[in-house]
Nucleic acid binder design. Sequence first.
DNA 1: TTTCGTTATATTTAGAAAAATATAACGGCT
DNA 2: AGCCGTTATATTTTTCTAAATATAACGAAA
Lengths: 135, 135
Amino acid sequence: MKNNTPQGMKKNGLKWRGRLWLEGEEGTFLGYGRVVLLERIREHGSLARAAHSMEMSYKHAWDLLASMNRQAGCKLVEASRGGKGGGGARLTPAGERAIAVFQEYHARFQGVLQEMTEKLGPGLCAMEKPEDGQG
Amino acid sequence: MKNNTPQGMKKNGLKWRGRLWLEGEEGTFLGYGRVVLLERIREHGSLARAAHSMEMSYKHAWDLLASMNRQAGCKLVEASRGGKGGGGARLTPAGERAIAVFQEYHARFQGVLQEMTEKLGPGLCAMEKPEDGQG
DNA sequence: TTTCGTTATATTTAGAAAAATATAACGGCT
DNA sequence: AGCCGTTATATTTTTCTAAATATAACGAAA
C-alpha cells in the first residue's frame, strides 16, 4: 500500500505535459517538429524525401527550413539543385549542433514534466463538502 | 567583460519558451487560457461576462468549461440560470484549487525556462568555417 | 404572465492554416 | 540539346478551427 506513483501518470489520470521551443526574431526558431525535419534531412539527404517521410508537404518543409536558416544567422542546411540525382540537401555543422542542443534541453524539459507529474497531489475534488449538515 | 546574461534573453536573441498543460482523459484538462477563464468567472460571476472580458465567444468558453468539469470528476464551476439577474456562475472550492495548483506549477515551469535560457550557449554559428584559406 | 439576463445548444459563417497543384530553374549526365 | 530528380516559388484548393449567429430553456421578480 505504497503511495508513490508507477511512472508518469497519477492515479487520478492527470499528467503534466508541455511543449518547448527556441524563440527567435520571427517567432519559433527551433521546435520539436523542426528538429525532426533536420534529422530526416540528415537521414535522407534530400528535403523532398525528408518531407515525404514525415508526411509533410514539400512547401511546408521548405518554409520551415527557410525560417530556420534565416533566424540562425547561418545555414543549418545546405541545398543544391541540379546535377547528379537532381540535387540534395545536407546538414551543416551548425545544423548538427542545432539538433544536439535542442535534444539536450528537450530531455531536461521532459524530465521536469515527469517530476512535476510525480509531485502532483490528489485530485481537485478531494475533501469536497465536509457534509456538516446544516439544512 | 562578464559573460553572464542580463535577464531572460541571450545576446544572440534566442530564448527558450514553452507551454504547459495538465492532460486528462480527453486531452487538455487545464491550460493557461482555461485558468484565465476560471479567474474571470470568479471575477465577474458570469460565464457570459467572463468570456466577453477576454474576447472569447460564449460558446468557446462554455465548451472549455464543460471539458474541465467533465475531466475534473467534479464541477469546477457551478452555474445557475434564470432567476435574479438571469443566472450566473461561480467557482467551487475545486475550481479555486484548480487555479492555485496550475499557477503554482506554471510559476515553476516559467522558472525552468528562464534558467534554461540563461544557460544557453553562444549561437549555433560560432566557430564555423575556420577560414584556412584554400582558394 | 411577461420581462430579464443568463445558461445551454445547434447551426451557420468566416478566417486561417494546411495541403495540393503547378511551374520554373538548376546542372551533371547521356 | 534533352533528361532527370531535385530545389525554389507562386497559386489554387481544401480542410480545419474559430467566430458569429440563432434559439430554446430557465426561474425569480415585477
